[in-house]
Write a protein that binds this DNA or RNA. Structure first.
Lengths: 336, 336
DNA sequence: CTGTTAGCGCTTTCAC
DNA sequence: GTGAAAGCGCTAACAG
C-alpha cells in the first residue's frame, strides 16, 4: 500500500535520483523516462514523504499562518484566500492562532516552534511587538503581513487613514457634528496598527471640518460585537448628544447598532452608524460601511509570499482600495 | 543561531539520545541530567527539527483539518476550538479546504497528499462520498468527523432530526400550518448528511401535527446567505400562502429574512423565520434559532482525535445538545 | 540511567 | 540524461 521511492525506481528501471527528478519536474530527464516514472508513480499511488523530502532539501512546502482569531470576518476571509492560493501551488497552510484575551495580555508569539517547520510566514492582522517580529524574522524565512504590519516589512493593507476619513466625512456630509469613534483595545497602541491609523483618520477628518474630536468621543472597547455593544452603551449613555458613531470595524458597528436598540435609539433617525470592512452580513441590517476586499488580500499576500520563497522580489507595501457603501444605518443628522 | 541536537549534547556532556529523551519528557533520565539538558537547550534556543523527528519516529504531531469553507460560522467556530485544543497538546493544525462550487461538483478530496503528513484527520462538515472516505481511511490514521459523518465512524454532531423537529414544532405551536423548509443543495443527498436529517425532522414534525409537507415546500438553495435569499424569493413568490420558513442553518435563515424584506414582507407579522446554529450575529436581527455549541464541538473532536492518536478509544458518536432560542423573527401565524 | 549504532526516505552533489 | 553515494537531523532499539 505505502510505497517508497525505491519501489518506483525499481518498477521503472531507473535510479531513485531519476524518479525524484522526474516527479518534481526538474530538467535533465528524458521525456520518455519522465512519462514512464509518472505513470508508475501514479499507478502505485506514490507520493514522496514530506518529512523525508524536507529533511533532505531543507524546504517544507508549508506556510505558517499566524492570526489572533479565525472566526472573525476579516481573518476568516484572508485565510480562505490565502489557503486557496497556497494549495494551488501545492503548499500547505499551517494554522497558528494566538488568542487575544479580553482584558488580559495576549499570549506572546513563540517563534521557536516554527523553526524549520515553515518556508514562510503570513501574519494576519496581529499587531505584534517589535521583539516578537524580530523573533519571527530570526527564523530566516520570508514574512508577509496582512492588515497590520510594521514599517519596513512586506505588507498588504488598505489605507486605514483614508478609509477612516472617508467614513467620517460621510457622516459630516450628512450634517453630523458630534461624531464619536469606537475603536479597539487601548493596549493596542502601536502607532502602525490599523486601529491607531483609523483614529488618526477620524481626527483628521474632524479637524478638517472644524469639528472637535475630544478624548471622550474616542471610545475603546473589545474588538468584537459584544465588546462594542458594551462600550457603545456606555458612550451613548454619557454622551446623549452624540448623533453618529464611526466604528473601526463592521463587527464593532454591529455592536453599536445593538446598543442603540438596547437604549431605544432609532438608527439612523437618532443615531447614524458606519463601520469599515464590507462584512458579508452587513446587508442584513443595512450597515453603511467602507468596504475592503479581504479574500483578495489573502490571495495577494500568499502569492507574494510564494514569490519571496522562490527568491523573487515583491513590493514592500501593497495598498488595496476601499469604497464607501451607503446603506441604511446612516442618515441626516437630527435637527436641533 | 540554528543549533542541532549534537550541539546540545556536547554542551551538556551527554549523548544525543539522552538529549532526545530529556526534551521529550521520556522516563529513564536522571532529574539532574534532564534539568541540565533543558536549561542548555533553552539557552541555545534549540527545538528539534520536525522533519527529522517525523522521519525518524513516523509521527508528525500534525492533524489535518479538512473543511469546505472557513468563513462560515459553524466551520470557523469548530476550527477555532480544534486548533486551540491541538496547540495545547503541541500539535499543529494543517488546514485543507475543499471548495464547494455553486452549481458544479466539488473538487474531490485527494487523500494521497496527506500521506505521511498527518497523524490524524478532522473532517469538518464535509459530506464525503464513500470512496473518498475510504481513501482517507486508507491513510491509516484516525479520523474524526464533526457535524457530518457516515455511520460507523467517530462523529461529533448534534441530533439533527431533533433540532429540526424542535424548530418546526416551535412554528406549529405559533399556529403556522404552511411551513416551508429551506435546505442545501439537492446534490447533497447522502442519507446521513445533516441537511437530509433535518429534512426528515421537518417532515416528521409536520406529519405529527397532521400538516402536509409537500415537495413544493421543501426548497433547495445554495448553502449560504445569498443562495438562501434567492431560493426563498422564488418560494415566497410562488407560494404566498407560506407563513413560516424553517431554514437549515442560521445563514440561510438570514437569507430568508433578506428575501422577505425584498418582497415587502414583515417579519414576523407576515413571515416567521427560524434557523439552526446560534450564529453569533443572529442577535442582530433577533433571529429565532435552535442553537448548538460549535466551538465546543471542535474542542471535543480534537480531544478525541488526540486520544485516538495516542492509542485510546473514544465513543463512536458524541451528540451535543441544542436549545431553542426564541427571539424576534418568529411570531403568531397571521389570522385567516 | 546512558551511550552506540542503525536507520527513517528522500534530495543532491559529483561522476559518467 | 542518468546513477552512486553521501548525507539531512533526528529517534529507537539494543547494550551496558
Amino acid at each position: 500500500m505505502s510505497h517508497g521511492i525505491e519501489d518506483v525506481a525499481r518498477a521503472a528501471g531507473v535510479s531513485t535520483a531519476t524518479v525524484s527528478r522526474a516527479l518534481r519536474g526538474l530538467p535533465n530527464v528524458a521525456p520518455s523516462t519522465r512519462d514512464r516514472v509518472l505513470a508508475i508513480a501514479h499507478q502505485l499511488g506514490y507520493v514522496a514523504s514530506p518529512s523525508a523530502a524536507s529533511l533532505a532539501s531543507g524546504r517544507t512546502r508549508t506556510i505558517g499562518v499566524l492570526t489572533p482569531w479565525i472566526s472573525h470576518w476579516f481573518f476568516a476571509s484572508v485565510i480562505e484566500g490565502a489557503e486557496r492560493t497556497l494549495r494551488a501551488s501545492d503548499f500547505d497552510a499551517l494554522l497558528h492562532t494566538f488568542e487575544i484575551f479580553r482584558g488580559g495580555p495576549r499570549r506572546v508569539v513563540d517563534a521557536s516552534v516554527l523553526r524549520r517547520r515553515v518556508d514562510g510566514l503570513l501574519v494576519v492582522g496581529l499587531p505584534l511587538a517589535d521583539d516578537e517580529i524580530g523573533d519571527l524574522a530570526g527564523l530566516g524565512v520570508p514574512l508577509v503581513f496582512v492588515g497590520s504590519g510594521p514599517p519596513g516589512r512586506v505588507l498588504v493593507r488598505l489605507d486605514d487613514q483614508l478609509a477612516a476619513r472617508t467614513a467620517t466625512e460621510h457622516l459630516i456630509e450628512l450634517g453630523h457634528t458630534r461624531i464619536a469613534h469606537l475603536t479597539g483595545d487601548p493596549g493596542d497602541v502601536l502607532p502602525w496598527s490599523p486601529a491607531e491609523q483609523r483614529v488618526v483618520g477620524w481626527r483628521e477628518a474632524m479637524a478638517a471640518a472644524g469639528l472637535p474630536a475630544p478624548k471622550e468621543l474616542e471610545v475603546h472597547g473589545y474588538f468584537d460585537v459584544p465588546g462594542a455593544r458594551e462600550a457603545a452603551t456606555g458612550l451613548l449613555r454619557s454622551r446623549p448628544d452624540v448623533s453618529a458613531v464611526f466604528a473601526s470595524s463592521d463587527e464593532m458597528a454591529m455592536g453599536v447598532v445593538l446598543a442603540a436598540a438596547d437604549l431605544g435609539l432609532r438608527v439612523p433617525q437618532d443615531l447614524s452608524v458606519i463601520g469599515i470592512d464590507g462584512h458579508d452580513l452587513g446587508d442584513l441590517i443595512g450597515l453603511t460601511t467602507v468596504a475592503q476586499h479581504a479574500v483578495e488580500q489573502g490571495v495577494r499576500a500568499a502569492t507574494m509570499l510564494l514569490d519571496l520563497v522562490a527568491g523573487g522580489v515583491v513590493p514592500l507595501i501593497t495598498t488595496f482600495p476601499t469604497r464607501l457603501v451607503i446603506r441604511r444605518t446612516t442618515g441626516a443628522a437630527p435637527v436641533g
